[in-house]
Design a protein around this nucleic acid. Sequence first.
DNA 1: GAAAGTTCATGAAACGTTTCATGAATCAAT
DNA 2: ATTGATTCATGAAACGTTTCATGAACTTTC
Lengths: 329, 329
Amino acid sequence: MHEKSAPTMADVAREAGVALGTVSKVVNGQPVGEEYRAKVEEAIARLGYQYNSSGRALRIDQTNTIALIIPNTINPYFALLVHHINMALEKRNYRMLLCFTQYDQSREMEYIQMVRQNRVDGIIALTYNPDLVIPDDIPFVTIDRFFSVSVPCVASDNFGGGWLAAHKLKELGCRKLGFIRVGSTLTNEPSKRKDGFVAACVEMAMPFEVMALEDGAPFSQFEDFLARHVKNKKLDLDGLFIGTDSLAWQIIHVLQRMKLRVPEDVQVIGFDGIRMFGDLEPVVSTIVQPVQEIAEACVTTVLSKHLSNVPSLICLPVQYLAGGTTKDS
Amino acid sequence: MHEKSAPTMADVAREAGVALGTVSKVVNGQPVGEEYRAKVEEAIARLGYQYNSSGRALRIDQTNTIALIIPNTINPYFALLVHHINMALEKRNYRMLLCFTQYDQSREMEYIQMVRQNRVDGIIALTYNPDLVIPDDIPFVTIDRFFSVSVPCVASDNFGGGWLAAHKLKELGCRKLGFIRVGSTLTNEPSKRKDGFVAACVEMAMPFEVMALEDGAPFSQFEDFLARHVKNKKLDLDGLFIGTDSLAWQIIHVLQRMKLRVPEDVQVIGFDGIRMFGDLEPVVSTIVQPVQEIAEACVTTVLSKHLSNVPSLICLPVQYLAGGTTKDS
DNA sequence: GAAAGTTCATGAAACGTTTCATGAATCAAT
DNA sequence: ATTGATTCATGAAACGTTTCATGAACTTTC
């Protein structure tokens, strides 16, 4: 709009006294005679030439852009994911087209239309729309949600993480456990955190309770749930596994208001492994998702041309990390 | 790459039995005879036509894309900014090209080159590179940092915020104040938080101390600073104004470890107004930046064609918001 | 009813790139 | 010295869009 018509390859060719195609080869690093290359490079420098990616995209039908569809960046786990996916893309000379759905199902569908216009080379999506239609003509990778064998899904080992949390809590001396999460309607990979937790409890003959806040239900239901479990000033649950670190933070604040001490009275393990502000402040003990590996897996998968011989579910290992909310800290 | 050659305008024209230019007009909402419009729209629907934005961008030399250059999305304030800027752009049918500098000065310069290739229609940048060269042929807007009258800068009223914080703390009964921040080398708009604070203290004849952590210095210097101010189990500062909410969180944790009670022993006010996980958990009392208005201002400014009659410093009002770290909570 | 004016669909040109058939120049082989 | 093979710069064509000069089909006016 404002640009004073940037120089084109034709300008460079004229300046260098060389053919248009030769400039193209130089710019793309294809073999060109030494003296020609020198002349062209000099002309490029002199004119400050930068290639026009629209022209390129139009010609080769490839935009070097991947769309990332995600609810927001406010949730620190999403923010981390966005960050690492962008870095993984940048390393491969791709750009990221970021789309925030804000958990709005209609937006999710609109975005899929929109990124089509932009001819993105692929889509990475973390969505909650239960009846999302996945285009079959664009490479599509999902995070944390399995659709079908033809749509690769990247997730961490949620089941294993739940399992691990239960075992850790037992190891740390807990006698009765609780599992707490929000949003229970949609079945996705993170739902398996509960499954792994429950399986481990059953296997260990460990008593446990499950509390899930329905979508949209008031947060106070958690407080009621916890209050119900107070027996003579103590919680009768001495270990809590909580669906996400964000929720764990909130629950811990509730516990503090109830004058219950963490980890003395009740130990807490979250899930995700987010570090709030660097590694300085005390932090929730957690099951860490390998965000960087997840990002890498998404990117390599979405960029692999032949999506046929790619695994349809990429499951990455999680780790337990002691923070300040368990007795091993 | 994978796409089975999506239909073009020519295809639509053929399908509708109509000229190419007519299809273009319909797609762009220009006046077209009713019967023609109907035929074209039907053909578009039948073929599932989506226009190719590369072709369009090439022709009209406009990409409908704005670059946002920012350190990261991990810092919750940046995450919020990214979110609102994206929303403001989307409302106007623009896309966001996101660039994370990670506080790396060379990256900041590289990005400016990179987004040039992409022929973005403008750049919004929040950077720390002291000798950044601002291109004069692309609309450029900075956040929180003033370069020159020809480069519009959007910021909140940092001076006023510092002033307000000092006055609030006095109003809340404090007798001696402290100001704490990190990274003191670069002078930018947020530096004025201190100036406003100091000016207010001087005006009110309120004793105060300033502690700034040099870039890269260990965090423990804050702990030393605070420890030095403990006189018989009390801090001799009973009000702290802290440069950002993130830092405030960390400082509060330090205070708790020192067995000092917030707000009973010392009241704390931060700056930014980030809400960590929704509005549920107890929160730092703070000077709230109007993030959404900041985002809107950036976007309208960068998109205004005639950058000549645009103010060179857009300063937006801040607000005090009581949280759990002052006695008015 | 003819001339002048108006409306509006038409299709070719142009945007900046990549690609590929062409042919000039060089080299190797006899 | 002549032919055949090889290398490699050349420049036209094509990608999908917007724009604009053209002219066909009307409408208005006297």
